[in-house]
């Protein structure tokens, strides 16, 4: 029994548990915290998979920036509980059934059809982390330079959009 395997199992259990917590928690703040936990476990998965840059980005962007934004909005709007749902009585059972079916389908796909039971190509140890990072950076800034730049434009547009959306119109106060 390897410690990596034990680590994987524990991390997988934490990830699923935190996701379940997200699903069931009535309090929005708790939900956000469950998600942060989930993101953190996923970041460890990335480290296990030999992707330290992505793992750090995950922690920085998701667990840091995005979740702070979420919490900020939760605080802004008041993390109140919603009243009990009136309509759509069949929504919940149907959603559960469908999610289950999806899961079954995916599992079937995974283990029966694709036969992806093969081990990962090379162990974490054999990966030269520095080289891998360099290769990633090369690829990103050579082959994917244009998409990278477009991403910056996307972020700019999103920023302007948010400003325009949330900006109060002139005279709206009086009205």
């Amino acid at each position: 029994m390897d410690y990596t395997l034990i680590l994987f199992i524990i991390l997988a259990a934490v990830a699923v548990a935190s996701a379940a917590g997200l699903l069931v928690s009535r309090n929005t703040v708790y939900a956000a915290l469950f998600l942060v936990l989930n993101f953190a476990t996923v970041a460890v998965f990335y480290l296990l998979l030999g992707a330290p840059f992505i793992a750090l980005a995950q922690v920085t962007i998701y667990a840091g920036a995005i979740m702070v934004l979420f919490l900020f909005v939760i605080m802004l709007l008041g993390a109140d509980k919603l009243p009990k749902a009136k309509g759509l009585p069949w929504q919940r059972p149907l959603a559960i059934v469908l999610a289950a079916v999806l899961l079954v389908e995916a599992g079937f796909l995974l283990f029966q059809r694709l036969q992806l039971t093969a081990n990962l190509a090379s162990p974490e140890a054999s990966i030269n982390t520095t080289e891998a990072l360099q290769s990633l950076a090369k690829t990103l800034f050579s082959q994917y330079l244009l998409p990278f730049e477009v991403t910056s434009v996307l972020l700019l547009v999103a920023m302007i959009g948010v400003i325009v959306l949330t900006k109060k119109e002139k005279g709206e106060q009086e009205a």
């Binding site: 899961l103 283990f111 992806l116 990962l120």
Partner: peptide, 14 residues
């Protein structure tokens, strides 16, 4: 090091 199969990660992802 114990090699963890790809399918396990995919199962978690799924």
């Amino acid at each position: 090091t114990q090699i963890i199969p790809l399918s396990w990660y995919l199962a978690v992802s799924m």
